[in-house]
Design a protein around this nucleic acid. Structure first.
Lengths: 202, 202
DNA sequence: GCTCTAATCAAGTAGACACTTGATAACGTG
DNA sequence: CACGTTATCAAGTGTCTACTTGATTAGAGC
């Protein structure tokens, strides 16, 4: 008689804290992105991750702690999105395309805006990250334009496929979630940026 | 012995269904705007309105019904916001200033975007309301620009003081909620619209 | 192998929440 | 003033939800 394999799912039982943490974080990103902080359910996160609910508290202390941990992950990705030296219209195009490549991240970022109460995990980081963009804009526009405000406008515009799907559906008459539209819209954002004189001059 | 006044608060007890309805709607606007649909609490709405909780179900059937009733109110206001014939930059300036005059409405509208699932109470209404704007833009820009997309971008840009306060805080270094900044930002939106050639031509 | 720790799990719990129920008091109408 | 209707109220109810507790097991170090 061979030694009996006690567990029916030996692979599933193997421990791997890093993997578990990552699974929970990924599931949390999807849930928070889909429903926002208040709407997200910890039970749904655990189920989506395929782990025991309690592990959420084991690794992240609270729903809030999980949310904050997520913000850090997202922050790291943002830093790597646009290599320095990329022309502005192309920067904006890529930023708009994030709606395709990382829709959860963009939604998370949008939720954070509405749920913002005055303290931001990433305040200083973002300020530093966007400074070059503001300065580049300053050099390319006239004195009547406040480059910081224009940066904000362009950021908002680039995120619109995520933040204003209802407007897009009404105004453009198409489903804003299709890749075709996202690409078209991203091109349009770049086009408008060029019209504003934000392209490289020869 | 004079006839005793039985109720200590006779004025409060006076019935006024219309007033009650309005009180609930106003309180709901504030709560939903502050926390979104999932985050809003019916108990908080009743308390803010100063009415018995049950009246929410008496008048609106459900939390969802209350939310929908609110959407209709908001919709009506939108129609009256910008009289036809207003030049585009001025339209956008006023739209951006809504963040001051009707912050709850703007927030409600922004929440609706993130919570959008494909069905919209005001789909047709908004489409019709925004058509003239799209057509006006079409006449003023070159063929490389999709006027519907530009309309979306400008809408998103005009709402940024509400949707992206965290970005504004980082990039502009000011509190996005102050009236001074809101006015400055609204002027900037109008300025950029003029730069894009959206002003009246002589 | 033994033991200690760290990871996983199952079964709660207390409170919050949307919504009901059934009674009561103001109002309109004859 | 009687009487039916309508608005208001107080006190639930079942369910959901974030979080606890306490036991169990996999793996690391000796």
């Amino acid at each position: 008689m061979p030694p009996p394999r006690r567990s029916p799912k030996p692979q599933e039982r193997r421990r791997d804290p890093e993997r578990t943490r990552a699974l929970i974080l990924a599931a949390a990103a999807a849930e928070f992105a889909a429903h926002g902080f208040a709407g997200a359910r910890t039970s749904a996160i655990a189920e989506r991750a395929g782990v025991n609910q309690q592990l959420i508290w084991y690794y992240f202390d609270s729903k809030d702690g999980l949310y904050r941990a997520l913000a850090e992950v997202w922050q790291r990705r943002q830093r790597e999105l646009v290599p320095p030296g990329t022309p502005l219209p192309e920067q904006l195009r890529r930023y708009a395309l994030e709606a395709l490549d990382n829709p959860d991240g963009v939604r998370l970022f949008a939720w954070a805006g509405l749920e913002y109460t005055g303290t931001d995990v990433d305040h200083d980081g973002r300020a530093e990250r966007m400074r070059p963009t503001v300065e580049e804009i300053r050099e390319r526009v006239g004195p009547e334009v406040d480059p910081a405000c224009l940066t904000v406008m362009l950021t908002a515009a680039a995120m619109a496929t995520t933040t204003l799907p209802h407007v897009i559906e009404s105004v453009c008459g198409v489903d804003p979630r299709t890749p075709e539209f996202a690409r078209h819209y991203a091109d349009q954002v770049a086009t408008v940026a060029r019209l504003l004189g934000l392209a490289d001059h020869p």
